[in-house]
Nucleic acid binder design. Structure first.
Lengths: 346, 346
DNA sequence: CACCCGATGGGAAACGTTACCCGTCAGCGG
DNA sequence: CCGCTGACGGGTAACGTTTCCCATCGGGTG
């Protein structure tokens, strides 16, 4: 058991004294800055190791960087986000940067504000916002204060970079796949959105749009059937129930997210319908849920890891050059066909 | 679009000037410290609002607290952890504290060290370690430096508090339930552990122990059958395959975690066995997976929210009184019987 | 009326690090 | 041999906040 009063922390002054150099010199070595000879570097590094010195990020933050990057997640429960986080940490593993996740409060503007403010107040060097719901002006305000990358939200701004997946194409992949299996009555469950900006920028809206356009492209404009609920399991359950109540039942349901598809499967099981014999189901995100054997959900894969990795790259670039023109990266999704979709029966 | 060069931040000096008081006075108001009259407080608060001042945590950290609490998660993917996190943030919602999550690198001592060091370097006021795998001495070293609460790991230390769930009892609940349904050949899949301390302290080992003891208590010592793999879906799959290869197949499988049970279900489906008719399956953690309709997995509920909430309470107490004697909280799990367990057939 | 006390306000020195700028010194060309 | 240059090392003032302590003041007590 250690002494209950923590021993005073080793500071840069201790290192300087131990190495018989100035604190300035130590600081230079730490930051690989100009003005230190190789011998000096070696001497200082030895002292650092001997004393077990680690710079105090809080003190650094007061002057310059904190070597900390904040990631705001809207919802830890969504099994798609870990992929993105993996991509982020993976790319940051061999840098001095450390990532911290801000626990999101499920798509609530106020919680988002609290978290982003907390990140700014803690002097984070850059932040990555994953599928934020806040107003555009709010995002730009954040980006004006600290280097920012927005992930999973379409619509670009001159002050922040974005990384998105092409949701329109993704939705089309699903429709193409289902049409290829002979389906015509393909319904879609979307996340209800009222805010005009979000209708343009949020991925869920883009998916609905992609669905619409793909249906039209296949000459199925009359069959377009969209139910608006929310992107949760309950939302999927509710949406499926509404669709089953239609005079003519759809032969396939395209849920806007895997979690929604979970709710759909649940509702179909309750209704005594079998998948895919009676009805086909597809999701979006290719989460572990989807790949899980007994479920085996057809889904769209977003390459979350690449999304995260790209977000970090852009962020580091922007930290290095604050004023650079903003970049938009759009990645292409792929379809993973599994056992919940099949050739239409009858 | 905001000006590209962020305007200088409002500081405590600005507030003081605007309110025509000293910076000391502002600081006192901010911290609700002694020595400020009600009028002074009102005046300062008005100035704060008018200027939109927010204290810079980095600067605070240099002198005192950062109002930041770090939570180390071993694996974001485990659907049980969000519950704990919810409990943590819920209790912290109306305080000045902010939580940040350290993305764990899947049960790796080195990653744990990196994350905890990063938290300490950033001057966090306290940290919560969820199911850490590091050596006891390492945990005590951390706790000697910063107030610490360890969650989900048995074995106590004088320097840190712990919150655990009674895993022995939880395992017994499952065995009792299965025995009550007429099962005798009940197998268990555990997470393989070699480190002697961890065998005592880790929840997985406790569950295996609880299983053993409960089997003995029911006079089923001869039926004890444990497969050692890992707590992942693959681990469950592999474990189930081993069990199916037994000359006499078990009639029930108790997986040490829900994710493991997922793998088991997967393997059973592949083998053409139906659940629960041919074989019963139970998990542990009562994750959303388990409650999902089409799966409907019998599981043990750990009340993650309460675990998190208790962890925060202990942490705040320890932050307030650094030297207090350590506390161990052990919560009681409950069984949630669902459709993957049934009366033994034949 | 002198004295003391509690309540209130502020001055100034930390906290650990970085960034600006200035000195020194060796080597070089003229 | 002199002055210039570039490389290197260090002194010191910030950064924004808290904390220790001292000053002031009004009123109650002896």
């Amino acid at each position: 058991m250690e002494p209950p009063t923590p021993p005073r922390r080793v500071t840069i002054v201790d290192v300087a004294r131990h190495a018989r150099v100035s604190t300035t010199a130590v600081s230079k070595v730490l930051r690989n800055a100009y003005g230190a000879s190789p011998e000096m570097r070696a001497k200082v590094r030895r002292a650092i190791d001997e004393l077990g010195y680690r710079p105090l990020a809080a003190a650094r933050g007061l002057r310059g960087q904190t070597y900390t990057i904040g990631v705001m997640l809207p919802d830890i429960r969504n099994p798609f986000f870990p992929e993105i986080v993996d991509g982020i940490t993976g790319r940051l593993a061999d840098t001095d940067y450390q990532v911290f996740l801000g626990p999101g409060g499920c798509n609530d503007e106020q919680t988002e504000a609290r978290i982003t403010e907390a990140m700014i107040d803690r002097g984070m060097d850059g932040i990555i916002l994953i599928a934020p719901v806040s107003a555009r002006s709010r995002l730009e305000h954040i980006a004006a204060t600290v280097p920012t990358v927005v992930v999973g939200r379409h619509g670009h701004s001159p002050v922040y970079d974005t990384v998105t997946d092409d949701d329109v194409t993704g939705a089309a992949l699903v429709v193409d796949h289902l049409v290829g299996l002979g389906h015509r009555r393909i319904a879609h469950i979307e996340h209800h959105e009222t805010d005009p900006t979000r209708i343009v920028e949020m991925p869920n809206a883009q998916r609905a749009d992609g669905y619409r356009r793909a249906m039209q492209a296949h000459g199925l404009a009359d069959e377009i059937d969209i139910v608006s609920t929310v992107y949760t399991q309950q939302g999927g359950h509710e949406g499926a129930r509404q669709l089953l109540a239609r005079p003519q039942r759809p032969t396939a349901i395209f849920a806007g997210a895997d979690i929604v598809a979970m709710g759909v499967l649940d509702a179909l099981a309750e209704a005594g319908l079998s998948v895919p014999d009676d009805i086909s189901v597809a999701g979006y995100d290719n989460t572990t849920f989807a790949s899980f054997g007994p479920i085996s959900l057809t889904s769209v894969d977003q390459a979350g890891r690449e999304i995260g990795s790209n977000a970090v790259r852009l962020l580091l670039e922007r930290i290095a050059e604050r004023q650079k023109t903003s970049v938009q990266i759009k990645l292409s999704p792929t379809l993973v066909a599994r056992r919940t979709t099949a050739r239409v029966s009858g």
